[in-house]
């Protein structure tokens, strides 16, 4: 699979983060995100980023996280540059803050996706009352990403094998070239979706409004600790003010 999608690919590992309930993991990621958005101090941003990075390291996913980091770096540079140019007053501090913030937000969410299976995620959503139609849609869209990637590869190979040059011509011509790729792909995926729908029917999908579950999620002691930690992180942007610390 190509590297930008790496962020969503769950690779099973047995670490502290993997064993957590998806809900507490979600709370953790969310609190890091909220804290990062709420805090105006550079120092605090660095703390949050360090924390998120530390957690990814604890989950042994650093190697998987780096491609994502590389992929978003140009975007971060753009955010930095834009803020540097358009912010009045202290542009350097503000631009750095925004860039760091972007890193923190993506890192905390990468943390969640790297350590949670799509199945677990939809279980958590169901637990929170989201109907199965929607959770299943989510599970399946992730499940079929690699399948779709394979199809793209096969169709591209076939197209090249017919002597077609995808990179021929100017920009407009090149864009048109890709239509040749899209037509069989779209037709094929429409057919596939029909086959999937048939298979769902054959598995009694929609038989009851309230499907039951083989696995049920259960919060354990570490989960409650993580929840408490998350709450603390969420209120941490207030800490400098309360403790009367003057930091930037």
């Amino acid at each position: 699979m190509s590297s930008p999608l790496q962020a969503f690919k769950y690779v099973p590992k047995d670490t502290f983060m993997d064993r957590l309930d998806p809900r507490s993991k979600f709370a953790l990621s969310l609190s890091l995100l909220a804290a990062s958005l709420a805090s105006p101090q550079l120092t605090m941003q660095l703390v949050y980023l360090a924390l998120a990075t530390l957690l990814i390291a604890a989950a042994k996913r650093l190697a998987q996280w780096t491609p994502t980091l590389k992929a978003i770096s140009p975007l971060v540079a753009a955010i930095f540059a834009a803020n540097l140019i358009f912010t009045p007053g202290m542009p350097l501090t503000y631009a750095t803050l925004m860039a760091l913030r972007f890193f923190t937000v993506t890192t905390s969410f990468t943390l969640f996706f790297l350590t949670t299976t799509p199945d677990d995620l939809s279980l958590a959503l169901e637990e929170m009352g989201v109907p199965r139609e929607y959770t299943l849609m989510f599970t399946m869209s992730l499940r079929f990403v690699p399948t779709l990637a394979d199809d793209v590869e096969t169709v591209t190979a076939a197209l090249l094998s017919r002597g077609f040059q995808l990179d021929r011509g100017n920009i407009i011509q090149r864009a048109k070239n890709y239509v040749y790729l899209l037509v069989p792909l779209i037709i094929y995926e429409v057919r596939r979706s029909l086959m999937i729908a048939e298979a769902l029917e054959a598995r009694a999908f929609g038989a009851t409004k309230k499907p039951t579950r083989l696995y049920t999620l259960k919060m354990k002691k570490p989960d409650y600790l993580v929840l408490i930690a998350s709450a603390l992180i969420a209120v941490s942007p207030l800490a400098p003010a309360i403790l009367n610390l003057s930091i930037i």
Partner: peptide, 16 residues
């Protein structure tokens, strides 16, 4: 490809 013609397995992957 001019020398080597490949017919892939699934026709639906190669109708353009």
């Amino acid at each position: 490809s001019r020398k080597v013609g490949i017919v892939f397995q699934n026709p639906d992957h190669q109708l353009f």
